[in-house]
Design a protein around this nucleic acid. Sequence first.
DNA 1: GTCATATTCAACCATCTGGTTGACGATTGC
DNA 2: GCAATCGTCAACCAGATGGTTGAATATGAC
Lengths: 126, 126
Amino acid sequence: MTPSLDTVFAALADPTRRAILQMLLEDDMAVTDVAEPFEMSLAAISKHLGVLTNAGLITQEKRGRVKWCKLDPDALKGASVWMQGFGQFEPVNLDAFEAFLERELSLEQTGETKDNDHDDNQADDV
Amino acid sequence: MTPSLDTVFAALADPTRRAILQMLLEDDMAVTDVAEPFEMSLAAISKHLGVLTNAGLITQEKRGRVKWCKLDPDALKGASVWMQGFGQFEPVNLDAFEAFLERELSLEQTGETKDNDHDDNQADDV
DNA sequence: GTCATATTCAACCATCTGGTTGACGATTGC
DNA sequence: GCAATCGTCAACCAGATGGTTGAATATGAC
């Protein structure tokens, strides 16, 4: 079963869970390590990880007594596609944009580098 | 105040609200008309519209005794940017992509029109 | 003014959510 | 075997959420 938009968006609606996802962007982590920076019980984090797993946003694999958590960024795809359906806002990833330009068109023009005025507020307000 | 990712994602987590947003993509609507296709009370729809307004996803303007609901797609921007932070999936809005190309670079090359192979599954699975 | 329409408000209810604590099962190290 | 570590489970709690109904407000039509 592919997780519903309901569960994906609901999973993303909690700041703790978004923070966890960003931590996992760096590297896979054990449950205990995920919990370390948060001021809440291990059981609470375990529940959050359950929600993320249920939404398909992460996968968990037990090796020995340690359970490793791994990001599954593909799960965001459905949600992203849905949102882009509203596409009346300009695309956001201008870096990828320009990479796309370069790749697809092999520009030869003397392009002075445009200043990237996109808001890259990804880091704060998780 | 700019609505938090919390409220935006939470607003998107409900199928009724996502369906409302898609209806408003077509046209602005009065509250009563928004409620019409749903099998729930007008008061419930009014609450949903309150959630969407609170998340900044729609705006409401009262003209006479009718309150018009209007989509505000800019509100999805923050959420979209956040999700793109995980950017390991390809960008989706290729139409906007190509429009961007045209606008920014004023191509003069004999561009044969590329076929749009993007998945526009916006309508189903709201 | 009176009646109908458009929308919200208030109270209520059931269920979900996010947290706690304490007990428990599984695994590792000695 | 025994103790420590890793993680979940179960029970509980407060507050949020999504729905209901009935009354109230505001505007428009006649």
